[in-house]
Design a protein around this nucleic acid. Sequence first.
RNA 1: GUGGAUGUAGCUCAAUGGUAGAGCACUGGACUGUGGCUCCAGUGGUUGCGGGUUCGAUCCCCGUCAUCCACCCCA
Length: 431
Amino acid sequence: MKFQAPKGTHDILPGEVERWQWLEERTRGVMALYGYREVRSPIFESTDLFVRSVGESTDIVRKELYTFQDRKGRSLTLRPEGTAPLVRAFLENAPLREDSQARLYYMGPMFRYERPQAGRYRQFWQIGAELLGSARPEADAEMIDLFRAVLHDVGLEEVTVLLNSLGDATCRPAYREAIRAYFKQHEGKLCGDCKERLATNPLRILDCKVPSCAPVIAGAPSVLDSLCPECAEHFEAVKRALTGLGIRYEIAPRLVRGLDYYTRTVFEIHAAGLGAQSAVGGGGRYDQLVKDFGGPDTPAIGFSIGMERLLLSIGADAAPAAPQADVVVIALKPEAGIEAQALARTLRGQQEAPERRSPLRVLTDVAGRSANSQMKWASKMGAKWAVFVPKGEDGYAVRDMAAGKDEQRQPSIEELRSWLLKRREPVESAR
RNA sequence: GUGGAUGUAGCUCAAUGGUAGAGCACUGGACUGUGGCUCCAGUGGUUGCGGGUUCGAUCCCCGUCAUCCACCCCA
């Protein structure tokens, strides 16, 4: 074959796409319940937007961006995450700032140049929500509650919420130096990657999974012990709020996220069945980002969920093939093809006024197959009825496919249509 | 960027150093206007791609591309 989908991308086909549509509908429903409104931002942005927000030393910026130049030489990048674009949109569009607490969400593809594996793709989909304008712990709690609500709505209950605080501009630099000094002392016992991190991003060492690093990490000072009083109080208040909402969590002092803009609260939610990539999503507070972008002082918090991972964790059982048609019009003779097509068109009722419309999904063969084959096909399409043309002397023959019996003939098209509509079952949404 | 496994019909898989087979699917038929079961027949593959070894490779070697898994990191 000449062409194939680019590495790390994939097509979502009928049979699978129904699960996506279902997830999207459920998510929109939950977002609406919490009063969040959707923002659809561009899929590419100025490269600087990501470099300056996500951070120059992060892996995402250093080696995972899809960056290109347009015809005027501007450097653009396919978005690797959704928060920075949304903050940009927030600052660019005054209507988003009307409410002192803006509740926004997005849903769409993100792009990162990485080696694909289970639950990881170069184009992947995220659902994200952002709450801008509140520094209060209630905002943190609402975010995590909303995250859980989305998972709950699609049936994912068995999850672990990991919670940590990274401090703020007051206490983090000191902690960063403390940890650098500590690991410097034990540099000899660290793995090669961690030796590099010592220079680039010492906090990341805390997250290392190499067994030989474990003892050194275990002895490292904890972020939580070095929080300034304000950050410590905020963290305590967030924990109290979560408890108040009945949300269980685990404190994860070594949870460090891969984007530089986070301050104070960070969290991840993990689920089973995802292979090595067990996080269905994560997020955190970013109190400085809006200001860094030149906007007003606007504390904010957000999260993102990986849609592939979410679908993976709630089970890959393919949805039963949804019926594709209610009615199949069968041409008994090859010459009846056009008559079949015309009847199908009328039965669909698409020409009717919208308020009178109750369309039947109607298919008819265009491959010129035998009546026998058309019947087999009608079964496969899940049709409830087969209607035969040409019309007989006493009307249209109708067969109930499930019962396997022929119904009374319908003298005219109008009677045939109302007969079918009367017996039509409501279309069930794919699950 | 690193490591391991894999790559044969639409799908799931088999086979042998001598120019590939099954099941399912698909098409037609056995069924006197009409399906689901059963049966019969048929379509369909330059064995991922490119080189090399060999009289000859799908099976051996090298490269490459892709997929899967793991590392890194994250969704």
